[in-house]
Structures are given as C-alpha cells and as structure tokens.
Design a protein around this nucleic acid. Sequence first.
DNA 1: CAGCTCGAAAATGAATGCAAAATTTGATTG
DNA 2: CAATCAAATTTTGCATTCATTTTCGAGCTG
Lengths: 257, 257
Amino acid sequence: MKSTIPEDGVPLTKDTGPGGAERAENSLHGEILSRLRDYVVEGNIPDGGRVPERQLCELFGISRTPLREALKVLAAEGLIELLPNRGARVRQLSRRDLEELFEVMGGLESLAGRLACENITDEEIADIERLHYEMYGYYLHRDMHNYFLVNQRIHEKIVAASRNETLRATYVNFAGRIRRVRYSANFARKRQRWAEAMREHEAILDALRRRAGSELSDILFHHLRNKRTAAVEHLAETENGTAAAPLDGTSPPIVNA
Amino acid sequence: MKSTIPEDGVPLTKDTGPGGAERAENSLHGEILSRLRDYVVEGNIPDGGRVPERQLCELFGISRTPLREALKVLAAEGLIELLPNRGARVRQLSRRDLEELFEVMGGLESLAGRLACENITDEEIADIERLHYEMYGYYLHRDMHNYFLVNQRIHEKIVAASRNETLRATYVNFAGRIRRVRYSANFARKRQRWAEAMREHEAILDALRRRAGSELSDILFHHLRNKRTAAVEHLAETENGTAAAPLDGTSPPIVNA
DNA sequence: CAGCTCGAAAATGAATGCAAAATTTGATTG
DNA sequence: CAATCAAATTTTGCATTCATTTTCGAGCTG
C-alpha cells in the first residue's frame, strides 16, 4: 500500500535559494538565465534598450522558448521590463527607483549587520579587519577601483556572517540591479564623501567587534543612506550634462535635448 | 530626423514593481502568473506536492508554454522548486527556511518602520490607531481570526507609509511565502505570547506617534523575531504530532510514520 | 510637401510537435 | 510470494509553427 505515499523526491536543485539569484547551472534553463542575467547586468545592452530576442537566441544557440522563460524571470527580478506585444527592455532606473533600491539595500545590510553580531566568529571579524585595512590603503592611494572591490567584499562578508541564505540571495539580487550605478557613483565620489565613508567603515568595524547589533544596524542604515544620496546626486549631475537617464520613470530617454 | 531616436515607448506595464509581486493582470502571461501564484499560496496543492502541468493547463484553459513560464517565475520567487526533468513541486519550507524568512521579514518591517517615521502623516497614524484598537477588541474577545486580519493590515499600513514601492513589493513577496504557516502559527498562539504581542503593538504605535525611527526599527525587529520563535515552535509541535512538514529540507514529507 | 492611410515585413505571444528522460506497469525469476 | 527488470506510458524540455500585433515604408491626398 505504499501507493498512498504520493511523492518521495528529494529536492535536487538545492540552488542558492529563494531570494531570486539562483545558480542552477544545470538544466539549460538555469544556464541561460544566469548567462542572460550576467549579460544584462554587465551592461551589454544600454539602459532602456531593447532586448533582442532573436539575436540572443543565436548568441546562446538556443530557441526562443528557454530564452523567453529567462526573460520572464528577469522581469520578475526587476532587471528588465516586459511591454505587452512590444518586447523586453532593460529597466530604466528612475531617480526614485534608485532611492528606493538603496533604501532596501540599507534595510538588508542593516539586518545583516544585526544578525552578524549574533553569529560572527572571531576569525571572520579578523578577516573583515584585514579587508578594512587593505581598503584603507587603497583610500590613501586614491585607488578608487580597488577600494570599490574591497568595499563590496566587506559588505558581502557581513551579509555572509548573518548566516541567512535567504537574506544573502535577496541581497545579491538587489545588488545586481544597482551595480552599474553604484560603481559609477563610487567613482564620482567627492573627496569629502569618501572620507566620510571611511569613517563610517571604522564605526562599522568597531560595532562589529563589540557585537553591538542595534548599533551596527543603525550605522549600516545610515551608511547606505549616505551612499544613496551620493549616488542620486551623481546621477543628477551626469544626466544634466549628458542626459544619460531620465529623472522619472515616465519620460522616455532623451537622446538629444 | 526623428528616426535617430530609436525607441519611444513608455513603460505600459507599471506593475507593482521589482520585488517580484507584480500585478500585471493584462498580458495573459501576467494573468496566469497571478492566478497560479494565488492557487499555490492558497494551499490548493499540499506542501511538497507535485504541480501538475497538464491539469493546470486544462484548469486555466491554456497551453503548456505560458504555464511553464509562470512556473519559472514562481520558482524564482521561491514558492516552488524545479527538479530537473522531474517537474515542479510546492516548496517545502524547512524549519531553517522559516527562521530565515521571518528574519528577513523582520528586516523589511524594521526598515519600513524607520522610513514610515520619516514620511507618515497624522491621518495615517490615526488610521493605524483605529486599527490598533479594533485589534485590541478582537484580542479581548479572543477572536483570533479577525485579530489576524487586522494585524496584517496594520503591518501593511506601516509598509505603505514607508513610501517605498520596491520595499512594499518585496514585502508582499515574502509575506506570500510564509502566509499559511504564519496564519496557523497565529492560531496556535499561546495566551502568553498573544498578550506579549499586544504589548509590542502598543510600543509600535507609541514609537510611531513619536516618529522614533530607530526605536521603532528595533521594536519591529524584535516583534518579528518573537513571531518567528512562536511560528517555529508551533511548527515543531504540529509536526511532532501529525507529521505535517519535515524538519529539514532533505527528508521527504512523511505521511504515515 | 506635410500628413495620412494602407500594406508588407518583422516581431511577439501562444500552441503544437518531437526527442529524451522519468515513471509506471507487467512479466519474470529466485 | 517478494524482488527485479524491461517494455510501455507519461512527463518533461526544447524546437518549431501559427496567429496577432506592431512597426516600418511606400503611395496617396489635400
């Protein structure tokens, strides 16, 4: 009578999970999804540009079906937009979108910091300390590129120390959406803001050492809020000059104005 | 020379946004996605059960293509799992999954509370106050069902007051994942925990009135953490008794053990 | 010559078809 | 009679096909 037991399958796709950033490199669909996501995140298509179905099919050597499945998923992730009967476009992040994304990132990092204080090991703190001083070196040498990379790694380490895969996957998803903007915003960072960011990182490390969860939570929230301000200001400047992106979500990109 | 402007489309699918819970009731795909999501969230398929492609196609009166697209999206949202060559299953939430989800919900609500303090109007606070006292009435009458509903609405109001659509959409997504568990956990609430929850809600309202962002953030985090504990305890009890859900993600559901 | 309409070409959205994998069923054997 | 194995059936994954819709351009008109 074992027919009463309907299913007995053990989940084989133990992907990175629910947040949306799964690495299912098996099953062609997952492969295509990852590749297409990278393709978009890395900026191969301009902001607001069409996502050329046919060309991508040829590029990946597949038919339209799996590609379209991936498109739906990327749309759900917020990376692209689907216009009914008019195809997919790379999502234009309005100023407000950016503000919202940085706020959510702030909330996630804030949470990660709080949880990390409950779970982080001394070794992990030592790890982050090393990265911190490495980053400080890049700060002194005005090496923006490496500063950016180490900065990212520090934040990722804190997220990892939260011991929450769901949180981590969600964080990765949101980080992907603002990646380009965040990078260029960092590049455009004013001296003053850069120094301020370094001080904030000192405070982060300090609170982490003391496992001061609530405090670290606050610091990280304000740290991201400051990043938000810097990024949005940067965006406003560049678009005033070169008209790269629209201010709101409604107006189309102005090419020559 | 307007041919130099490549695209002029205004996004028509102004869905609720990037978090994953879009309401694109237009464009058949969105329709199917919403319907299928509701179908799963409302528990029409048992935990860990197969998602019958063919039957659902008949139910919705469509072919497999749009259904499969919706399945990929739901998998990305974390509602179902896709097993290579073995179809889709309703995602089994392990104890750890639940803990993680409640923690992330706590982070999101914590953030929402902080932002709400910056943006909420007096009218909205008055609104929430009314709901609060309504809920208190249900508490006194031991009316768990209505208590639950009003409770949800209060939390949604706070999220709405954060003025962050991205956050709201993400919140809705996560709320959908734990909906069933959350509900039953509330039902099983011990008297003591229920009283504690009421006190926490008093504190929430108080901090909101004073627009004390950091404080409200802390309260909401701990409020959700307590919910988490209650829910997980409840899960442990029910599964010990009736073996409804597995403790971890690896073991299959035991129907008769 | 600007603006409009109409029609062809292309792209999108969904259905169907087909090969491979998995599940079920039935027969066989120790 | 239980366990095993192999053929048949179902299911899955992807490619292909078909019906609409959109887009682009030529021709017409005022």
